[in-house]
């Protein structure tokens, strides 16, 4: 394992789940829960004669950023695409639950607890959703995660980090959408239906899944930032993600609520204005929406260095 200082400059997209988990919090502060030494492995994969992972493809634990306890969930795309099964799903669910319970415990114990001392949850996504080898259990776990996200509302902020190879798709695409804040790198991808499935449903003329530039224009970090689906767009390093998370510690829960895209009737009504725009525009390409947002040279945004992009881009407002 690389040391913490070296991890900071690691490219986020290539970092393993454990490297991300350790590097995102303060040096030496991470305690892994149900880690590989516990060897909790999927009996369902074993039954099928498939390889198992001692952490079931997900790293869960707790660390600190400054004075803030940070509960971390980090998915490993190199193990069956970061897919969620019974054990990995339960680890995810229970990490959020531990954060909520810890919040309640601290609030009850310390009358003068300040915002920075309250726990937060960080989820580093790298997954296509349900693990088909144990699909039903994985699906049920997704519903439990959504339930915990709602239970965390008003207490524990939940931050999504998306910048790993696999992206965040399928059921985990909803989970990411349901968090308070989404931080992406330009290499992150977020969506519901993966590109191959869209191609299969709509035909190659409509959507060519092998066209990587098209895939990134539709689901990538720059697009999601323009749409307001990503709150922050950062450089592709563990340090950059860590700094952005760190900048959010200590904010009030109301400030986190404001950063949400969905989660109230008013926010749904705002999203419906965007849907009306979708119906009216019927965009054949995401760049048409970028132009509509006020970017005169939409195609030129694609290759701008990140800092220039952030300085120049107009984000969609409906």
């Amino acid at each position: 394992m690389t040391n913490w200082t070296d991890l900071q400059s690691c490219r986020f997209i290539e970092a393993s789940a454990r490297e991300r988990a350790i590097g995102l919090v303060d040096e030496g502060s991470f305690t892994e829960l149900a880690g590989p030494f516990d060897r909790v492995t999927s009996p369902h994969l074993k039954l099928l004669g498939d390889a198992v992972a001692f952490d079931d493809g997900i790293v869960t634990g707790v660390g600190q950023i400054g004075r803030t306890p940070v509960f971390v969930i980090s998915q490993e795309g190199r193990f069956i695409g970061g897919s969620v099964g019974e054990i990995g799903g339960a680890k995810m669910v229970n990490t959020i639950k531990l954060a909520i319970d810890f919040h309640d415990e601290l609030v009850a114990k310390f009358a003068d607890l300040d915002e920075e001392e309250k726990p937060m949850v960080v989820i580093s996504f790298e997954t296509g959703g349900v693990r088909l080898h144990e699909a039903n259990a994985g699906l049920l776990a997704h519903a439990e995660v959504m339930d915990q996200l709602q239970k965390a509302r008003g207490k524990v902020p939940v931050i999504a980090l998306i910048g790993s190879k696999v992206g965040a798709f399928g059921g985990m695409g909803f989970v990411a959408a349901a968090t308070d804040v989404i931080i992406m790198s330009e290499f992150g991808r977020l969506g519901l239906t993966g590109p191959e499935v869209i191609e299969q449903e709509m035909g190659k003329e409509e959507f060519d899944a092998s066209d990587r530039a098209l895939v990134f224009r539709t689901t990538g970090g720059r697009h999601k930032y323009i749409m307001g689906d990503a709150n922050f767009l950062v450089e592709n390093s563990i340090a950059a993600f860590r700094e952005q998370v760190s900048a959010l510690t200590g904010l009030s829960i109301e400030a986190f609520e404001e950063m949400r895209r969905i989660g109230s009737s008013a926010k749904v009504k705002a999203q419906l204005r965007a849907v009306a725009l979708a119906a009216q525009m019927q965009p054949g390409d995401a760049t048409e929406v970028w132009s509509h947002a006020g970017n005169t040279d939409a195609w030129g945004l694609i290759d701008l260095p990140l800092s220039d992009f952030l300085a120049r881009v107009e984000r969609l407002s409906v």
Binding site: G173, L192, E201, M227
Partner: peptide
């Protein structure tokens, strides 16, 4: 499933309902 759906974020619509 669809391109317009992904451009505008179908994941938000279903998550909003949940």
């Amino acid at each position: 499933p669809g391109k317009v759906e992904e451009i505008f974020g179908m994941n938000k619509s279903t998550a909003a309902y949940q």
